[in-house]
Design a protein around this nucleic acid. Sequence first.
DNA 1: TAGTGGTCTAGACCACTCG
DNA 2: GAGTGGTCTAGACCACTAA
Lengths: 255, 255
Amino acid sequence: MNVDQRLLRLARQPYADKHTQSIWMQIYDRLGEAVESGLLPEGSRLPGEDDLASMFGVTRVTLRRALSLLQHEGRLVSRKGVGVFVRSISVRYEVRETEAFNMALNGADSRMDALSLVRKPASADAAEALGLKSGEEVTEVRFIQHAQSTPYYYAVKEFPVSVMPEFARDYEKTGSILGAYAAAGIESYLRTETRITGDFATEEEADLLHISRQAPVLRSRSVNEDNTGRAIEYNRGCWPMLSVELVFNNKTPFA
Amino acid sequence: MNVDQRLLRLARQPYADKHTQSIWMQIYDRLGEAVESGLLPEGSRLPGEDDLASMFGVTRVTLRRALSLLQHEGRLVSRKGVGVFVRSISVRYEVRETEAFNMALNGADSRMDALSLVRKPASADAAEALGLKSGEEVTEVRFIQHAQSTPYYYAVKEFPVSVMPEFARDYEKTGSILGAYAAAGIESYLRTETRITGDFATEEEADLLHISRQAPVLRSRSVNEDNTGRAIEYNRGCWPMLSVELVFNNKTPFA
DNA sequence: TAGTGGTCTAGACCACTCG
DNA sequence: GAGTGGTCTAGACCACTAA
């Protein structure tokens, strides 16, 4: 029995009393289960909306309410003119903030790719957090991180030029941020503050992370200092909300 | 000029090209601005959907797409048979995780109310996090926190009976958790681990926090230990996603 | 060019809330 | 009973994508 047939059987199950739970909610539940059970595997394309609507015995409008919620949750992604696809949220990556850059990933095929690297005046946010003078320059690097060929983290980092004047060269040579730190004479550092908020994806983030616009994300803004207390990095990152669990450990007892 | 008139003027502004941005998105933007600008104050009721639809010159269905997104974001709340209301997200509360219980609030009228206090076997989650034996009992306390008479934090705390056998009495007497700690001989403690995730509100959470079901929330799960390393509390909390900023500070340098 | 998802309409019925 | 938000339909037109 192929996927379409099994999906059809799922769709054709009788609905519970409409007044108990709305039809579109029941469709939402069934499609969600289909994704979680693996009937609709990660990355696979759903039948067209007209087909789905007739399978579930409803109008396209009603069907779309179910799809729409699944998209807002970041579980499905639609591409205009192409189709609706399953976005994996089966894994929830654990990110240990104390490990700073080395995010703990289950799989080994994790890549952190630099999208761009430019020298420019610090953003207002970074200038304040790093205590920079107005107009002071930074090296800004945009990163995207994948796991199992799904993007799940997007970050913009700013490194003061005054601290690491040759960041671009050093990063190029060593291929890692820690390498660039070391090349600038920074052997140890401290992530002094991390601020976490929830928000909705911007258009750029939605594109890069393969989620819908308006899908919720977790944002992190953090500052790194070297062991002399000098601010060396400002980082803004975001994850699709359901894709990550942030873990903070603490060793400092309270009074 | 009253609110309805000013809202009408906002609604009657010509729409940008439909192909640039959809009508419902433009309505969404305008209503969002109306909330942020204070034209629609916190807690106020919007005109009925029929009225709004005719004000904006669209069908109720189209208008509802705008309202629906604002509700998913936790900025509006609807009450069936009553109306649609503005939920304040103008403030984003800063919660310093290192201060554990004493959340930094701008205003002074913050209350932490206990909803229930019962003795029962530890939840599976808590038992694992606290290292309890199967079936071991805890005192479970459910809290809701308000600021400016808006609920913005809901927490379920579990305290092992083996550590604080008289928690209920001590909490009653002192009126605070720290008081109950002290009464049990715990003078200092350590929030050893905090795990942050994003999720969607359950029905109970949506009710208590005055947000829509399916509105995103930030969840925190944390463990407190006393200065001998004994686990004394397991806490599960959640905030409406847009209402909070979590701040973590770190004093431990990396290797 | 055919198929896809995105938008919008006009109208209907319902359950819920409150006076 | 009057007004509210919640649901659903049947049909239409559009822009985008890929073959």
